[in-house]
């Protein structure tokens, strides 16, 4: 994102209410993470201490300071999904994506595969509890997920089974 784009985003948020999170959300949506340079640029433009912005992006889980993979796989860990077996979905995804087991829950932050193809993370609830367990790949929701059905979903995004 260049400086001009950032200026445009800033000018879209003229009302003070909801401004800062709105701007940061826009950056997150476009870049899929919050690059440090942009945060510094924003701090200078809005005359807000960098520490304040850093505090925000580390507090709200919607923001990520690390670049994410090409596809973002988000598993709902809400109550309805938990009751319906979300843990097995997460573990299976970790296995399929060759990530250390349990890493996503433990760190509570997104984990990216070595080839940068996928980022796995957890969410609280998409409000789609009726079709639990639910996962989202990029902007697409999948309901009634089962461990066996996961390879087929991942394949839609270019994943291939590893030959060991």
């Amino acid at each position: 994102m260049d400086e001009k784009t950032l200026d445009d985003i800033i000018s879209q948020y003229d009302a003070p209410s909801g401004r800062l999170l709105g701007i940061l959300g826009e950056i997150q949506n476009r870049e899929r993470y919050i690059p440090r340079e942009l945060l510094e640029m924003l701090s200078a433009k809005l005359k807000i201490p960098l520490s304040h912005l850093y505090s925000l992006v580390t507090f709200y889980s919607f923001f990520s300071l690390q670049p994410v993979g090409d596809h973002r796989v988000t598993v709902c860990m809400g109550t309805a999904c938990h009751v319906k077996g979300a843990a097995a979905i997460l573990t299976t995804l970790e296995q399929l994506l060759c990530l250390p087991e349990g890493v996503t829950e433990e760190t509570r932050s997104p984990v990216t595969t070595e080839d940068n193809a996928f980022t796995l993370e957890i969410a609280r609830c998409f409000g789609a509890c009726s079709i639990a367990p639910v996962l989202r790949v990029d902007n697409h929701l999948y309901g009634y997920a089962t461990p066996d059905g996961l390879p087929a979903i991942l394949e839609e995004y270019g994943w291939r089974k590893h030959e060991d």
């Binding site: 003070p16 909801g18 709105g22 940061l24």
Partner: peptide
């Protein structure tokens, strides 16, 4: 009416945290 969006924090449903969030602070 204007819309303000959250950014992934359950505690921001709490009234004072919600205000903080709208004002651009941590919840």
């Amino acid at each position: 009416i204007q819309i303000a969006t959250g950014a992934g924090a359950f505690v921001c449903g709490e009234s004072t945290a919600l205000i903080a969030s709208i004002e651009g602070r941590t919840g």
